[in-house]
């Protein structure tokens, strides 16, 4: 039997076309994982179902919690959004619910609570926010949610093999950008779109996130990360809806991932998780940093320490101890 592994969207679609037992992206992902780890499909699905439970727990821990986090930069916004029920809402019920859930997961994360990285902790709210909100609003089964998670994992695996999940390498496009693509494909699959349309919705989502700065205030995974997850899940839903409407990305998914790499190579280190650029160094960002740490966060705001100096022969430490 030929290998069921796929490292590109093209290969994924080819596998589905060639094998009668594969109809959806979730089928192909399950077959690849079974081949890679020898774990049985039922075992794999059961483990994914437990992850859904961890995700729900992470949501419920913060959905009604008004308390601010230790840093005071986040907390209480999930509850605020939950209780915001105006007669006219820009968001559809499922989108409104998804934004609350994304906020809740990220607030739990900021409190050092237990979450499922999807694909990272800084983007952990988007996939569960979308999938669980869709389940509740559209009455989806647990199995459909597991299919959604498997679909999102398939998108993630293609990106992992060809690009990165590391914001220190690729900025926030590698975290929130990737998770919106994963979520968008998952939602498309759950509503029954074809593998091609699922990948197309992932392309639409990721394209719109290219170049996103990772510039967290005081280096904390809170501002802008928490709110960005809520807007991210709405973005994923918009992409999925556009794909359902028959709107097609001019650039196919594999090339969008290539573009993501290219953009990453052009991003300055100051906006790649070093907190030396963007929101982190605004007057407000600096003030908050000082307030939280009672100092200028050691080296974080130093002007004379280029993050990517020439390779030095010795592994000496140029910075003073923080």
């Amino acid at each position: 039997m030929s290998s069921r592994q796929f490292f590109s969207a093209a290969k994924l679609l080819q596998l589905i076309a060639q094998h009668d037992d594969l109809t959806t992206i979730a089928d192909a992902v399950l077959a690849a994982e079974h081949e890679l780890t020898s774990r049985q499909p039922t075992e794999i699905r059961a483990n994914m179902a437990i992850r859904l439970t961890v995700m729900r727990d992470a949501i419920s821990q913060s959905l009604h919690n008004p308390a601010r986090t230790k840093s005071t930069l986040s907390g209480g916004d999930a509850k605020r959004m939950h209780e915001h029920t105006p007669e006219h809402n820009f968001l559809s019920p499922v989108m409104h619910r998804a934004t609350q859930y994304a906020l809740a997961v990220m607030e739990t994360n900021a409190r050092m609570g237990k979450i499922v990285a999807a694909p990272t902790a800084g983007s952990a709210g988007i996939v569960p926010g979308g999938i669980i909100a869709l389940q509740e609003e559209w009455h989806m089964t647990e199995d459909q949610c597991v299919d959604g998670l498997l679909t999102s994992a398939g998108i993630g695996i293609i990106i992992a093999h060809n690009a990165t999940f590391s914001a220190a390498k690729g900025g926030c496009q590698a975290e929130v950008g990737v998770s919106t693509a994963m979520c968008s494909a998952a939602l498309s699959a759950m509503r029954g779109l074809s593998p091609e349309r699922c990948l197309n919705s992932a392309s639409l989502a990721l394209k719109n996130m290219l170049g996103l700065a990772c510039d967290p205030i005081a280096g904390l995974v809170e501002a802008p990360c928490v709110k960005r997850n809520a807007i991210g899940v709405a973005h994923a839903m918009t992409s999925a809806e556009m794909s359902a409407a028959g709107i097609t990305s001019n650039v196919p998914f594999d090339e969008v991932v290539e573009a993501m790499n290219n953009v990453a190579a052009n991003m300055h280190a100051n906006i790649r998780e070093t907190s030396k650029g963007g929101l982190a160094v605004t007057p407000t960002g600096k003030r908050i940093t000082k307030m939280i740490f009672g100092k200028n966060l050691g080296t974080a705001l130093a002007k004379d320490t280029p993050p990517t100096a020439e390779p030095s022969a010795q592994h000496s430490c140029h910075y003073s101890q923080a």
Binding site: E33, L36, L150, A153, G154, N162, M182, E222, N261
Partner: peptide, 26 residues
């Protein structure tokens, strides 16, 4: 930057790890 990784990726690396926050890399 574009260096395809030779590491194997399980779907549990992508939808996971289950972890204490706040950052998967840090």
């Amino acid at each position: 930057m574009a260096q395809p990784t030779t590491d194997t990726w399980s779907i549990f690396d992508v939808i996971g790890p289950v972890m204490v926050g706040p950052s998967s890399s840090h």
